[in-house]
Amino acid sequence: MVRILGGLVGLGFVLALLLGIYDTVSNWIKTPPAATAEHEFHEHPRKAGFSFEGVLGKYDNRQLQRGLQVYKEVCAACHSLRLVSFRDLEAIGYSEGQVKTIAKGFQVPSINPETGEPATRDGLASDRFPLVYANDVAARAANNNAIPPDLSLMAKARHDGPNYIYSLLTGYKAQEGYKNEKGEELLKQFPDTKTPQGLHFNPYFATLNLAMAQPIKDGQVTYSDGTAATADNYAKDVAAFLMWSAEPKLGARKTAGLATLIFLVIFCFLAYGAKKQIWRGVKD
């Protein structure tokens, strides 16, 4: 009985699927799927070669500090970093005093102790980086109807995040005459995809056009440690900094991981030896 009912149910599903297959194939033949500009011309991130990659890779504190500088002088005009506290910056090599100075450079929301009205005060080490816009409406109003996303987790919120940030920041191109790796020209293949007014062409962005204009240019930020002041370095450094802001415990994680793996491998050998010894009188 189970087998008869099961067979009938099975036949039902199989018939529905076979009809679906017929449907899929006939649609496929009638209307072959059109290629999309996003699919043909979207570029995967270029590799920047970061110090924190690989099994034993660690953050380079000097690079992170340069990245913080780029964030403060460029990105922070529009993008918040709301999940990071100033005190966290001690982890990238700043002293307690330096952290306090950095915090003082930001105004955080507060209340006037006399009147209770909203006010601002100097940041403290225990504060988080303040929001740039009080709410989404304000963010849209100031940015041509686009919301600049918070950057705290950006490096984990995109596929291959650090390389994506690096590639995006250095990937602005003129759309006119842009060709992909296969040598196909975007505007010849897809004349409708001309970048709309107010957007900017960038093949590393999923939809090829984004609201942010090219934010960094050579020489815009002055590094104090002798690193060349190029847009490529800014992009690399700020991408590394944003990886740190998204995954601040990466160093501790890898150190603990290595110790754990060594421990477990030894345990496995011991356990296997013990198993062999216990089973040695039994053919299995």
Binding site: F267, L270, G273, A274, Q277, I278, R280
Partner: peptide, 9 residues
Amino acid sequence: RRDYLSIGA
């Protein structure tokens, strides 16, 4: 030897 391995594990 067996004790050593079992106890170790």
